[in-house]
């Protein structure tokens, strides 16, 4: 079964022969689309295309969906109430969520390590913005802590990118992903640490006061962006 299927797949793949062509297919398949700006080539592989479509879908959902009304019970009784979001908060959160989605899509499409780190830093800022729109003391305290973490996270991100540039002489993933160029493990590690610090979802949400914040489609963008950028950095680190 597999032989026949893989044969059909590989037959349909065009193999690029250019000098810096992204010819290796053993990690995520052949590039579907590329948009060169000099030596910086923005590209989509099947993997990043899936991530891109997912980010796009959730950005559109954040654009058109109204927030949910979170139900909260009153302690010591049968009563419950719903938290409504004021129009200003909603507008701000929606704006931040869309900015976050755009930054995520940029980070997914970036063909340049420094662009990637910049988009990741943007995601950090917009995540804080989405959360901090809610004027609640606990949520703001947590947003502040995450914000400090995101600011610290720019250090490993930028230093990682700088080390990649220092050791290889380029930041273009198109070139870095070729087997001729070796990136030191330390730089890769710094990139991963930076992304973990920037995106709050996977690791830091455990002590989540932030998820008490109402506004589901917007709070969800925090997780969408963090997890997608995490998936992207895994791909970058493995491919480099």
């Amino acid at each position: 079964m597999y032989e026949a299927m893989t044969a059909s797949v590989t037959a349909s793949m065009p193999v690029s022969e250019s000098a810096y062509g992204f010819t290796q297919t053993d990690i995520e398949g052949q590039a579907l689309f590329s948009l060169p700006f000099g030596d910086i080539v923005n590209f989509l592989t099947p993997y990043t295309a899936v991530l891109f479509v997912f980010a796009l879908t959730f950005t559109i959902i954040a654009l058109i969906s109204k927030p949910e009304r979170q139900v909260d019970t009153v302690m010591g009784g049968d009563a419950y109430y719903t938290k409504d979001i004021s129009r200003e908060t909603l507008r701000f959160q929606r704006f931040m969520a869309i900015a976050c989605g755009l930054a995520t899509m940029g980070g997914i499409m970036a063909g340049d390590v420094f662009n990637f780190t910049l988009f990741t830093a943007f995601i950090g800022i917009t995540n804080i913005g989405i959360v901090a729109a809610v004027k609640n003391k606990h949520i703001l305290d947590n947003a502040f802590e995450y914000g400090l973490l995101a600011m610290i996270g720019t250090l490993p991100l930028f230093v990682g990118a700088a080390l990649v540039l220092a050791t290889t002489g380029t930041l273009s993933m198109w070139i870095l992903f070729t087997p001729e160029v070796a990136v030191p493990l330390f730089a890769k590690l710094l990139l991963v640490i930076g992304v973990i610090a920037e995106g709050m979802a996977p690791v830091f949400v455990a002590k989540a006061e932030i998820t008490r914040a109402p506004g589901a489609p917007y709070i969800l963008m925090v997780h969408v962006s963090s997890l997608l950028i995490f998936l992207r950095v895994i791909e970058i680190v493995i491919s480099m």
């Binding site: 420094f114 910049l118 830093a121 943007f122 950090g124 800022i125 804080i128 913005g129 901090a132 004027k135 003391k137 703001l140 305290d141 947003a143 502040f144 914000g147 400090l148 995101a150 600011m151 720019t154 930028f158 990118a161 700088a162 540039l165 930041l171």
Partner: peptide, 28 residues
């Protein structure tokens, strides 16, 4: 030159984060 070109966006991001965090601090 490339490093010089990279510092500027890095600086902008840093300033943006600092501004946002200051605002959160003020509100909090």
């Amino acid at each position: 030159d490339l490093a010089e070109a990279l510092i500027l966006p890095g600086l902008v991001v840093g300033v943006a984060e600092l501004t946002a965090m200051s605002q959160i601090y003020i509100v909090k």
